[in-house]
Design a protein around this nucleic acid. Structure first.
Length: 397
DNA sequence: CTCACGTAGCCAGCCTGTAG
DNA sequence: CTACAGGCTGGCTACGTGAG
């Protein structure tokens, strides 16, 4: 896919698919005019996408019926596309196409805007990526495409109230429910994951853990009947099954992209929001937390590396990412050749990538070419964000 | 299609540090 | 001293993309 560079295009065009591949960007004339006018009228006259994302977001808050929604819908196309591609590449075999997944994601723009909080120090695109990814996974999961949450993870995430409702919903007797809930409490007490994060793929507890759970259960159980570890395991599986059937609502149909769709009709074709499953909310929250933590960690790593670079390298990064100069302009300003600028930039990015790669390896993320591509994209986005923020700060001082 | 522009790859040459 | 490796730069040019 060709990423959009022009600020007007970024806020006024939409992805068109052809035979499940990115075909082209289609511009909505009304949005284009609106964006051009806004650019002319803006006292800052900036072409920074973060600025405009925030601008349209704030306008959308004040006037939800305005064109702001259309601009943001256009803006988040790439985030939706990359989320869809990531899922198609890494998680599903399957009959679901890239265009299909993209559609699952992009229908959530409304929800994203409602859930977004600009005060959290999180940019809209990152926030949207998190929601897009979890939305697609959840929709696929509902269609039995991927099992992204093991029974054991689900059991750990459930609240007491929710599990009780699920068991009641499954038609169990109050005595049985009480036993199951007690067993579940023991399970939660004993089976605490050692590794933070990655809790969705929590594995089945080992036999020692089951014995410990059974021991705790038997010590707390008011009746004298002793239950074996195997029974407890069966109960927990029954709880997970009940929770799944209780938590997942009937799957709403997803609008598929319409081939040859006229670009002028997109507003009329916005799919309606689907009913939210509770699990989606749980996963989304986890996804956002993970992202925020990761973003903070990435920032710390990169800021440290940049501080170690020589002065000229730092200056080049600042001019390129902060002031958006071309290599030619930088060459003239710094009195060095364009190709030297290019090489230094490449070298800086290499240094930063190396640090990021090291960081991701420390998290035991294997560095496949896809991962590296993602890291590289994250790095570029981070650099742009980093230098536009430092510029904002220095202009205020 | 051509043309302009921005970027980066290729190759040669220079400089510096190090080992023998 | 020489030989060599590694890093950097200069010059040229290919490639991708957008505009006309």
């Amino acid at each position: 896919m060709r990423s959009r560079q022009d600020i007007v295009e970024i806020f006024s065009s939409f992805i068109q698919f052809n035979a499940d591949r990115f075909s082209n960007w289609v511009t909505e004339p009304k949005l284009r005019r609106s964006m051009q006018n806004s650019l002319i009228q803006s006292p800052q006259a900036t072409t920074k996408e973060n600025f405009w994302a925030l601008y349209w977001y704030k306008l959308w808050l004040a006037q939800p019926e305005s064109l702001a929604f259309g601009h943001l819908y256009a803006y988040l196309q790439e985030a939706g596309y990359w989320a869809a591609q990531n899922i198609v590449t890494n998680f599903t075999s399957s009959q679901h196409t890239l265009a299909d997944c993209f559609q699952m994601a992009i229908t959530k723009v409304d929800k994203i805007l409602q859930g977004f909080n600009s005060q959290q120090g999180f940019n809209l695109k990152n926030y949207a990526s998190a929601i897009f990814t979890s939305t697609i996974k959840e929709t696929l999961r509902q269609r039995q495409e991927v099992d992204i949450c093991t029974d054991w993870s689900l059991l750990r995430k459930l609240s007491h109230k929710r599990l009780e409702e699920a068991l009641q919903n499954a038609g169990l007797s109050p005595e049985k429910i009480a036993s199951y809930l007690l067993a579940w409490n023991c399970f939660k007490t004993i089976y605490v994951p050692i590794q933070a994060g990655a809790t969705r793929q929590l594995a089945k507890p080992d036999s020692v853990t089951w014995e410990a759970i059974a021991k705790l259960y038997n010590s707390q159980n008011p009746s004298t009947k002793i239950h074996q570890a195997e029974t407890l395991e069966q109960w927990m599986l029954a709880c997970a099954k009940a929770a799944r059937s209780y938590l997942y609502p009937t799957v709403a149909s997803i609008n598929t992209p319409k081939p040859g769709q006229d670009s002028g009709e997109w507003l009329d074709n916005l799919p309606e929001l689907q009913g939210e499953s509770l699990l989606t909310n749980i996963i989304t929250q986890e996804e956002i937390q993970n992202r925020q933590t990761q973003y903070k960690q990435i920032s710390e790593v990169l800021v440290a590396v940049i501080a170690k670079l020589d002065v000229q390298a730092q200056q080049i990064l600042k001019l390129y990412y902060g002031e958006a100069l071309t290599q030619q302009q930088m060459a003239a300003q710094l009195d060095i050749k364009q190709y030297t600028i290019s090489r230094r930039l490449t070298k800086c990015r290499e240094e930063l990538l190396k640090a990021l790669a090291q960081w991701s390896q420390d998290l035991h993320i294997s560095l496949t070419s896809d991962v590296l591509k993602n890291i590289s994209a994250v790095l570029d986005e981070w650099l742009q964000g980093h230098y536009s923020q430092t510029e904002l700060k220095s202009s205020r001082e």
